[in-house]
């Protein structure tokens, strides 16, 4: 395991210090907690957004704390949902009285820990609403399981619900638009290499020189199946087919695209993926209103990528283009 770290037990603490030192104009640390909040939190007259999850997905989630996106990000241990007390502190720190929306990715652990935190905050009289992101189409018969996972599509939820909150909308309205994004975003990913949780010291799985994992999550979990590495065009077409089978776009529809790197994939390769995504959408007469290409929701040093498509309507489109100013996402 080759990592640029001091000690596995310290990575989250030291990373949070590094984030705050890098971006003091955007974020500050909630003293004593693994929680990052906007420097000016709580922002008066605004519904606050709290997200988070295990660490190792950087820039998610701390990188999206700032104007027009999140008010707080809670950092768990690497790939491990944060505990309820941490989330509870985040909620208290950012609530301006207008209520707090929790953006939760659909993992048993995240759901339970955020639920418990919500109960604690509600007991204090804070208005809390929750949305659960489940954009990953990889898992097929998800109806009889815990449902689809939340992966990179979550970034669109942060962006759009964050923009809505910035307009002064109330908690219900912010929650509604978040739900709308969730209903309209689908993702799927693949990996060329595994990644290593620092404290585990060895990779979660191994892959042969020519093998890839298809349909995996963002925690180094194995995917739905393995196959031989194919060309970028073939792999992209395969993932897009799965996504489009679920999202059902019609000619004339408008979407936002996120080609998300898992950590070790060169931007060069992500742009190759993007090229094919656009070709496929163009062939289907689907218009692309906005494209994001880069590392938005990573899995440590995993090589691979995911594709997310968000079907837009007038409201979500406008909010997607609204200004945002955070360490990892700035839009004028």
């Amino acid at each position: 395991m080759k990592k640029v770290i001091n000690a596995p037990e310290q990575v989250v603490e030291e990373m949070l210090q590094g984030i705050v030192l890098a971006h003091p104009q955007y974020v500050r640390r909630l003293e004593g907690f693994d929680v990052i909040v906007r420097t000016n939190a709580p922002v008066a007259g605004k519904v606050a957004l709290v997200s988070g999850g295990g660490s190792g997905h950087e820039p998610s989630h701390g990188g999206f704390v700032g104007k027009g996106m999140l008010d707080s990000a809670v950092a768990g241990a690497v790939f491990t949902s944060p505990t309820p007390d941490q989330v509870y502190e985040a909620i208290k720190a950012v609530d301006s009285g207008k209520g707090v929306l929790l953006v939760i990715k659909n993992y048993t652990g995240d759901v339970m820990n955020f639920d418990m935190a919500a109960e604690m905050a509600e007991a204090d009289g804070i208005k809390v609403a929750k949305v659960i992101v489940n954009d990953d189409v990889a898992v097929e018969n998800s109806t009889w399981t815990t449902g689809r996972r939340g992966i990179a599509g979550t970034v669109f939820v942060h962006k759009i619900a964050g923009a809505k909150a910035e307009t002064g909308a109330d908690l219900e309205a912010v929650q509604q638009v978040a739900e709308k994004v969730i209903a309209n975003v689908r993702s799927m990913g693949m990996a060329l290499t595994p990644c290593t949780v620092p404290a585990a010291g060895k990779p979660g799985f191994t892959l042969a020189e020519n093998e890839v994992e298809i349909g995996l999550g963002i925690h180094g979990e194995p995917g739905t199946h393995r196959e031989e590495l194919r060309s970028v065009d073939e792999t992209t077409a395969h993932l897009m087919e799965k996504i489009l089978a679920d999202l059902k776009l019609a000619s004339g529809d408008e979407v936002a695209v996120l080609v998300n790197g898992l950590g070790a994939t060169p931007l060069m390769e992500l742009y190759l993926v993007n090229r094919k995504v656009h070709q496929i959408l163009s062939d289907a007469s689907v218009k692309v209103a906005k494209t994001l290409v880069g590392n938005y929701m990573t899995s440590l040093e995993m090589a691979g990528f995911s594709i997310s498509l968000l079907k837009l309507d007038a409201e979500t489109k406008e909010l997607l283009f609204a200004a945002a100013d955070t360490p990892a996402f700035v839009q004028a």
Partner: peptide, 10 residues
């Protein structure tokens, strides 16, 4: 609850 996290913590 406050140290394990994940699914097993809660």
């Amino acid at each position: 609850i406050s140290t394990v996290g994940g699914a097993s913590g809660p």
